[in-house]
Nucleic acid binder design. Structure first.
Lengths: 121, 121
DNA sequence: TTTTCGTATGAGCATATGTTCATATGTTTG
DNA sequence: CAAACATATGAACATATGCTCATACGAAAA
């Protein structure tokens, strides 16, 4: 580990204090950091990503999602719950079925940015 | 579970076929879906998010990151490895220290979109 | 060259996560 | 009301993940 005491690290003392100050000013609250990580965690699963890509095209019921993605109704349902809790999708009941759709356009934008990133070189 | 056979689901047959066709056309390759999820997984941890917020402000060495975020050098180093592998940060050596900085601006954009989303209502 | 400093990394452990299975809930139909 | 259908949910299990500890690596200084 570096430095013998708090202020001494990498032989930089002033820069250190400066950095601490700036970071303390710009770093979001603990709650927001946690919520942010929580949000991205939702995007961090290929099953949920696939569900979102289907919802980019149409409003569909759980049953169709399961069929199109070739997965169990239960698995899909569990993931939809997570997507809904994080307000990425919304649902409405039509008879026995429940149709899911995108909650807002941030979802498209975030995924678009992600695609741009991984398509570099 | 729904439907007795493949084409029969929620009493919708044609819509089903239509959906399958559209999804097959627009759904990215398995590899890309996996990479996308992998990328967002990187953003899905508050420690890494905090590291990125520091790098938003300045180019810093591992030691300073550990100090500013009040975490072990090892823990920070492990996370930096993940961030680097996914090309979110880059590094350069200066003497004994290694300075890390943002790899590109997609990082800022993605996090900005995320913040917008969680700040709704 | 040996020591010191800054960083990287592998093993181990505790926790988190995704899927399956069984079952519950809610709606429509007979 | 009972049966059938669509979806939701809890428990269990296997895998993934983040941190710690010990240690290795790499560069600079003695």
């Amino acid at each position: 580990m570096c430095g013998k005491n708090e202020a001494e690290c990498c032989e930089q003392v002033e820069i250190h204090e400066e950095l601490l100050k700036i970071v303390n000013e710009t770093m979001p609250e603990e709650t927001e950091l946690y919520d942010l990580a929580e949000l991205f965690k939702v995007f961090g699963d290929s099953t949920r990503i696939r569900i979102l890509f289907v919802l980019f095209e149409a409003e569909v019921c759980v049953c169709d999602l399961a069929h199109v993605l070739n997965m169990t109704q239960s698995a899909i349902s569990h993931q939809l719950r997570i997507l809904k809790q994080n307000k990425l999708v919304k649902s409405r009941r039509v008879g026995k079925s429940i149709f899911y759709s995108l909650a807002d356009d941030h979802v498209r934008l975030i995924i678009a940015q992600g695609r741009e990133h991984i398509e570099e070189d």
